[in-house]
Design a protein around this nucleic acid. Structure first.
Lengths: 209, 209, 209, 209
DNA sequence: GATGAATGAGTCTTCATTCAT
DNA sequence: CATGAATGAAGACTCATTCAT
């Protein structure tokens, strides 16, 4: 069905994406040149421009898919029945952290990139939307672990604190050279503990007031 | 004692450092060009090379002093009498966060730069040492808030969790364009709350076990 | 006779030529890329190479036809009976100017391109020949308006002067963005006047001597 | 007085300008690359950017001076006493043609460049002004040769026709490879004759009406 | 006959850095 | 001590063109 050409094309595109993901992840967006990506992908740098209008277009393409699948997974977890909200938050956190560490640059790009500029075009807007969606989901997960009668303001503060924890964890290891598996094995308990500490502290303080 | 020349020389050097600090802080290390620094410092770009071997050397030089003074301040706080360990940790956290947000680029450079590579020369080693020292102080401050009989391993985990919170806070706002003052006014309570949540959660969990 | 394939092929070729003529005329030879032409012609850019060796080959091909038809028209006018030589020259001038302004790029290419280099291949030679033919016709038209007994040298000088006028008119408006129709409406009288001035002046001077 | 450095700098700048003028003149603005200019000037292409912000800046710089001096010369001639208007126009024409052929690209650039766009910045405006000034001077010179009581409209038409002649002359030989001197020697009489034809014709027609 | 894939040469431009003064 | 001059390496990107299908 798919002609040889189409296959080859698909391969090249995939090679570029893989190479770019890899390089962006290890070295950051700005530092990596298009020629490097091309070389890593085993093609000429001009070929890159056939598939992606821009270095930035490449980035957007690269980020959209994983982020969407992450959002999907998160929604799934959120809608699981038979879990306490706390278990739910733990699972969602675990998964979020794992995702971010597996897609290191993505992380930098998704969460640290300068907040929405107004003059940005479509593709960037799309990303921004996805980002907001993800944050919304996390916030929801946190909200459920808090007493339902607290003020919205306070819930927001707790969500922020939770984000700090996530961001802190991910940020700490984003630039580490340790492979993902070894990292997770070594620190997964600590990450889990982080969430537990947050939950315990958060609930104690909410009740205290 | 200091000849006129020496004074002038010192002035130029200082001008360069000030300009560089300013520019790095507002626009980031990579984005700022050496010529810009020189222009801002009111001297030729070649002059820069008289005082600093490198753009990077400039950065190292730039970071040393503030970091040292930070360490000093932290030590001071740590050695304060008449404070509970918790009050102590709150104060030290406040100060650390403030410092990091005031020296945004510095922060990125000090804390996110790839952990000590072996092939690195002197100046970077020095930074690394400072960095370790700072982390040691923070760790101490956390340790004091925990029951004194817990295993070292567990204390370390709590210190890590505390770091995550700090790193998360700082990382979240490092790239924000909001001026420091407005930022602090708006979020200082949330930052404080973060520490409280950590403390409450940490202690609850330590006792539970 | 012509198979379906041949017809289709012919259509594609025509589409390319039309598109190219259009683009060259409105935007100039250098500015237009081969991919643009292909897109405008509704085919792949590689297809272009089937029909034309080169971007330049395309141009030559493109110029040949209109130039030939121009030559034809000019010959027709020249052979008209019942016109004074002056009326003849006026008509031929009008037509020449109109042609040149309708085919702006062509003009640049036909009349301003560096005179025959020796190392040039066939197609360019052909163009050169056409060009010479056209000039010959114009020269003839001028010659007829002059006293028949003047030296050849002097007639040549007058022909040159006439060319200058034509070239000047066309050159002045070749790069104008004004549409052909509006341009002609606005300036046709001036163009006609130019020829009249030339004729009047030329004859006065020829007689004076 | 001028330090060695300043001299060298001046030399380089001059070399660049000379090379650029040369290349632009022979090959046109768009076709010439900055690297070529640099190579011809015997310096690195980056050096070029020290002296000129842009390829276009280079062009503007290149054009300003000669155009100004041309304007000056023309004004001088215009204000000469003891000449008939006709002699005046002849002299001014001679000089204008000579200038344009000596500064071939300049010519293309000054007279054929797309008429004032509104969004253009300072330097281009300056050029535009100069250009207009030159045209004004020529127009004046023509005006004086015409009966003083004719309508402005008609005078303008004559000025246009005169421009066509000039433009035609210059345009015809701009791309010629013949050296200026030989060219002038060969054709100066024809050029002079062109003006005479224009004058004779123009006056005859003006009187006839 | 027609096409998508791929490329190398080339465009302008910026930057950190060195050298002679 | 300080500087202007000059450079090479590198950046993103475009284009005409060829090859295998």
């Amino acid at each position: 069905m798919a002609s040889k050409q189409e296959i080859r094309s698909e391969e090249t595109k995939r090679a570029i994406l893989t190479a770019a993901a890899d390089l962006f992840a290890t070295r950051g967006f700005d530092t990596v040149s298009i020629r490097e990506i091309a070389k890593a992908a085993g093609c000429s740098h001009t070929t890159l421009y056939i598939y992606f209008k821009d270095k930035e277009a490449l980035l957007h393409h690269l980020s959209k898919e994983p982020l969407q699948s992450l959002a999907l997974q998160m929604e799934e977890i959120l809608s699981k029945l038979g879990q306490t909200p706390e278990e739910n938050l733990r699972e969602i956190s675990r998964q979020f952290i794992h995702f971010c560490l597996r897609n290191r640059t993505m992380y930098t790009l998704f969460f640290m990139i300068k907040a929405t500029r107004i003059d940005v075009e479509e593709p960037e807007k799309e990303l921004q939307t996805l980002r907001n969606q993800l944050f919304g989901l996390l916030r929801q997960a946190v909200r459920r672990c808090l007493p339902s009668d607290i003020e919205e303001e306070k819930a927001l503060a707790q969500a922020r604190i939770y984000f700090y924890t996530l961001h802190g964890i991910v940020g700490t290891y984003t630039h580490s050279e340790e492979p993902l598996d070894s990292l997770m094995e070594r620190l997964a308990p600590t990450f889990a503990l982080s969430i537990d500490v947050f939950l315990a502290g958060s609930q104690k303080i909410m009740n205290r007031e």
